[in-house]
Amino acid sequence: MTVNLEVTNLVKKFGKFEALKGINLELNAGEVLGYIGPNGAGKSTTIRSILGILKPTSGSIKVFGKDAFDNAAEIHKRISYIPGTVYLWPNLTGGETIDMLLALSNQKHTAKTDQLIQDFHLDITKKNRDYSKGNLQKVALVATFSTDADLYIFDEPTSGLDPLNEDIFQQKLLDLKHENKSILLSSHILSEVERAADRIAVINDGQIIQSGTLEELQNVASSEVEVSTKVVADKLATFAGVTNLAEIKANSYSFKIKIAALEPVMTYLTGLGIINLSIQRPSLDELFLKYYNVKEVK
């Protein structure tokens, strides 16, 4: 598998302030890496370092196997990037802006560009100064998706978009993935990351506090179980990992448990005769809150 981005022990200081404290990330071809965290956590500083705008204090960033800072100009030829806040030339139309952005990347307006304009329902005849925030975002997205690159970096890409256009964005991400492109998706919209990402890295206070697939992250947190059995389950409380046990009604129970500890509990419940069973794994929103309510995930 081709590794297109490798961040190793990245530290970035601004004077005495340490913005990034040993960041490690890896992004392969054909993969979406979700990078989540609150404002000020270090997401944008990481991205600016990857783009070669900021020089690391220590550690390394390799993009396509080359140093991100020393080879920024060469690397940028293979990157398509959209920032969190889009500022465009006010007197240009949306269409003129898209063509200019493509030309700056030595790209051309193609049939794919026209299809993207249609898919995002963008009126390219309006001037940028007359666009809403969402339409400015669409201009940038059309230019970004029109660019043939190997690494796509999206920083809060759906800001201002309505749900319909958010769905279109998700589909375009999937198209890039099928084309074996690498995608770094930085966002605080957790449902967006949850739908698209193959792996997720959670950053807080300049540190990665958890990373892995969504399933792996879910496995370190407790799932919620509701079960009804034919006879009383009076030994549930004795099983390791069972917490928040409550009897909803006769022979019906709710409790929390980590997936790794679930098998013996299920064997016990099956022996009692299961009538109804619901296992709800934590959503990314719930995991996010868990990770930010404690410094270390137990």
Rank of each mutant, 00 (worst) to 15 (best):
I50N: 04
T97P: 10
A143Q: 06
K108S: 14
K127M: 03
E26T: 15
T46F: 07
D70N: 15
L272G: 05
G34N: 04
K138D: 01
G34Q: 10
Q210G: 07
T229G: 04
Y253C: 01
L164D: 12
A261E: 15
V227I: 13
H188C: 07
V3C: 14
I275K: 14
Q207K: 15
I275Y: 06
A261G: 08
Q218P: 14
D167T: 14
R48M: 05
V11D: 06
G37N: 00
G59P: 02
T238V: 02
T243D: 11
N135Y: 13
P163N: 03
F154A: 02
K21C: 05
E156I: 03
N9C: 00
V232T: 14
Y268D: 12
L173D: 07
Y292D: 00
G52N: 02
L92N: 03
E215V: 12
N28Q: 09
L92W: 11
V7G: 00
S49Y: 03
S186F: 11
S283W: 03
E224F: 06
S223T: 10
D130E: 10
H121G: 11
A103S: 10
N39T: 12
V227T: 10
Y131D: 03
N165P: 05
K55A: 03
N251S: 08
E263M: 13
D285I: 03
V220W: 00
K295D: 12
F239P: 15
K108Q: 09
N180Q: 11
S283N: 10
G206H: 01
N4Q: 02
S159T: 15
A261I: 01
A29Q: 13
H76V: 06
N128H: 10
N219W: 12
L173E: 05
L161S: 01
D114I: 12
A149W: 08
D175V: 12
Y268E: 14
K172G: 06
V232P: 02
E216A: 13
I208C: 04
E18I: 08
E74Y: 05
F288R: 00
T147E: 03
A19C: 01
I153F: 00
E192D: 05
K235T: 15
G273Y: 11
D285Q: 08
Y131M: 04
K12H: 02
T113K: 05
S254Q: 13
I36L: 04
K127H: 05
L184G: 01
P163M: 06
G241K: 09
A197L: 14
Q170G: 12
L25D: 04
E263S: 15
A240S: 07
E192V: 11
S222L: 06
V202R: 04
I183S: 09
N71M: 13
D285W: 01
E194I: 05
L116I: 10
A261F: 08
T97I: 08
D205R: 15
E247M: 15
L92T: 14
K256A: 13
T270P: 02
F14L: 01
L185N: 00
P163V: 05
G42V: 00
